Computed example of a mutant assay.
Amino acid sequence: MTFRYPLLLAVAVAVGVGLFVAYHLLQRRRAAALAAAGLAPARPRGGRLRRHLPPLLMLGALVLLFLGVARPQATVPVPRASGTVILAFDVSNSMGATDVTPTRLGAAQSTAATFVRSQPDTVDVGVVAFGQGALTTQLPSNDHDSTVAAINRLTVAGGTSLGQAILASLSAIVGQPVSLPDAEAGEPPPDLGYWRSATIVLLTDGEDTGGPDALAAAELAATAGVHIETVGVGTVEGATIEVEGFQMATALNEELLAQVAEATAGSYHRAQDAQSLGGVYDSLDLRITVEDKLVELTGAAVGIALFLLTIGGLLMITWFGRIL
């Protein structure tokens, strides 16, 4: 335990010692005065404890009040969520479908912004936007206002590459470009390190129109200890969208999303509306760490002091019919 104002601690100790010495001298003077008058001191039922307990409780309370002025502090372990979360948003044309209100992308943006704002500064959140390619629009950071701004800037365009989304998310996590090894040339997978506190949240309707193999990219993430939570945004029945004057049908592809999540020991979640999307974020398994935090104990000292004053006063009234 430490004190913000240690000089006041010395004052509190001096006051405490002075009060107890004064109480002791007062009791001796009272006993001597009674003896000089030929009287015996009153012996309340319960003996010495009953006679001295109430005033000692009140004196102890006064010492704690003086101690509180010194602002006591202690370092205590505090559990907090921590880690890195990459929100990978599908921004392909199909995410403009209105089978989820207001659109698939709009619902994903709204609930993601709420999730980011609710995170402590021990959680770094990054944003990846992917269509046929992928672009990191916000590196993992505890600057959550910037992350929310990056989410709100997203707009729909182009096709979809789930594999490219996973590779770009891994690049943001490890801090270097990540690509799949050339299997035909016998190239070994890259050493990305181990990132067990990192999670990729893939928000998409699951329609993969090309690019690197999504399952191979997911297996690469698994070797780095990264979990992928896939979120299927849309409905199985689907909707019709208009792209460059042509109408196209688009529906949720759950099978591929479930396989990608399973490859990394993650989970697939269906989000057919904004409410179920919010539930997905609540279920994210963020790592819990213990962090030492300096906590002020002034409130506790004052609270205990008031409790002792109350008990001492009640005992004085009950046993002696007075407070002093």
Results as ranks from 00 to 15, higher is better:
residue 272 Q to R: 13
residue 119 Q to K: 08
residue 119 Q to G: 01
residue 102 P to F: 05
residue 190 P to W: 04
residue 160 T to W: 04
residue 93 N to P: 02
residue 22 A to K: 02
residue 203 L to E: 02
residue 197 S to E: 14
residue 298 T to M: 11
residue 157 A to E: 09
residue 250 T to P: 01
residue 297 L to I: 09
residue 136 T to F: 00
residue 162 L to R: 02
residue 132 Q to T: 14
residue 243 V to T: 12
residue 38 G to Y: 11
residue 130 F to M: 05
residue 53 L to A: 14
residue 1 M to C: 13
residue 2 T to M: 11
residue 231 V to C: 00
residue 36 A to S: 12
residue 15 V to K: 03
residue 278 G to V: 00
residue 96 G to R: 11
residue 192 L to I: 04
residue 198 A to C: 07
residue 84 T to W: 00
residue 29 R to P: 09
residue 241 I to K: 07
residue 287 R to P: 02
residue 45 R to G: 14
residue 108 A to L: 05
residue 59 L to E: 00
residue 139 L to P: 07
residue 243 V to H: 11
residue 34 L to V: 01
residue 200 I to F: 05
residue 1 M to W: 12
residue 63 V to K: 08
residue 72 P to D: 11
residue 89 F to T: 01
residue 28 R to L: 14
residue 281 Y to L: 04
residue 91 V to Y: 05
residue 109 Q to A: 03
residue 120 P to H: 07
residue 51 R to G: 02
residue 294 L to C: 08
residue 156 V to I: 08
residue 138 Q to N: 10
residue 2 T to G: 14
residue 285 D to E: 10
residue 207 E to R: 12
residue 143 D to R: 05
residue 165 A to H: 06
residue 83 G to V: 10
residue 128 V to I: 02
residue 183 A to E: 15
residue 151 I to L: 07
residue 33 A to T: 15
residue 243 V to D: 07
residue 297 L to D: 05
